[in-house]
Amino acid sequence: MAASAYQHTLQGPAIFAGVGVHTGAHTRVSVRPAPANTGVVFVRTDVTDRDNRVLATGEAVCKTQLGTVIGNAAGVTVATIEHLMAALVMSGIDNAVVELDGPEMPIMDGSSLPFIQVLDRAGRRRQDQPRRFIEILDKIEVVEGDKRATLTPASQFEVAFEISFASAAIGRQRVDLVMDDQAFRDELADCRTFGFLHEVEALRAMGLARGGSMDNAVVIEGDRILNPEGLRRPDEFVRHKALDAIGDLFVLGAPVLGRFEGVLAGHGINNALVRALLAAPHAWRYRAFVEELAEAV
């Protein structure tokens, strides 16, 4: 735990660009170093007439249809933040300013891998403040029909997820992993978002999924996967849902020390779980390992 006992930011800016999966708009992004205790702040550089800073917090999440959207009191929003958020927390980046010139984060290839790669190129810098973890002390659970999301105490960060779809291309899948930086890279980072062709067509009629394609999503029609290259992993679908959950949890502002379990869950119930945890101060505490290391010396 010593390696991650202190906060980290980036060594220099991580710069990339791409299309938003829903807007179809081309967006340029620069993830920049930030002082200790900043957290992750998104800045809409295309907005100049009002407050353009949106802090990634549980309370800032304002929409969860097909992705996590955060907003501020001035009505400025940033959409589809979860894949970058997962890459940041699992790369050990606590503090960053994310400047973007549009309303939605680029979808890249539909996974967190491109974000991991640009963050790696930028490098990490240790800061002088202790890294705070959110230690789960008591079970918190949100149930919505057959969907469920739970946080329970554990000595490490664990992620379990289960999905079930009628399509034979997916079926029932489950993953249960102890999660750290290396495990995220090995097990989840390259797993892409997915959707059904008939849903994509309906979404486009609603003005969504304008940037969605087989370049950035696994597309299913009936029981068939349409992408010519096929899947990256046999259970890529459930692994992507676990990736999403990690990104959705990081709006708590600190990495979780505990076990997350999702059953048929999505962004909405993930955020409901975040809010339920924040509303139950008895169920968690901040824990820093710098003090414990000092006491042990």
Rank of each mutant, 00 (worst) to 15 (best):
L137W: 03
R210N: 15
V76K: 01
D101S: 10
V98S: 05
D181W: 06
I134S: 05
L151P: 05
R174F: 01
L113A: 13
S155E: 14
I170T: 04
S111H: 03
S91G: 00
S213D: 05
R131V: 10
V78S: 07
F115A: 11
L119S: 08
G71S: 15
E135F: 04
G102W: 02
R131G: 11
G75Q: 10
E187I: 01
L84A: 06
L208F: 15
V97P: 01
F161I: 02
A205R: 15
G71L: 07
F194M: 02
I134K: 15
P130T: 13
G92N: 05
D146I: 11
D138T: 07
N72H: 11
G75S: 10
P106N: 09
E144V: 11
E104D: 12
A189M: 12
I70Y: 06
S155R: 11
Q182Y: 10
A154P: 06
F196V: 02
H83Y: 04
Q117P: 00
D120R: 14
M90C: 13
A86I: 02
V178R: 12
G110T: 06
A79D: 05
M214I: 12
G71Q: 14
R192M: 07
R126L: 13
R126V: 14
D120C: 04
L203S: 06
A73V: 08
D109F: 08
K139L: 08
M105Y: 04
G211H: 10
V76Q: 03
M206Q: 15
K147L: 04
M85Y: 02
I134G: 06
P106V: 07
G195Y: 10
R124A: 11
Q127M: 14
G102Y: 02
A168V: 00
E82G: 01
V76M: 05
I134Q: 10
A87H: 01
I140V: 15
I81F: 03
V142C: 05
L203E: 12
A79N: 09
R192I: 04
D180E: 10
D181Q: 14
L113I: 02
M85E: 03
I140E: 04
R125W: 01
D109M: 07
F184S: 01
D120S: 13
V118H: 09
A168P: 00
I134R: 15
L119Y: 08
D180Q: 07
E144T: 09
L203I: 12
Q173V: 05
G123F: 12
A189Q: 12
D176R: 01
I163G: 00
N72L: 11
V143N: 10
V89W: 00
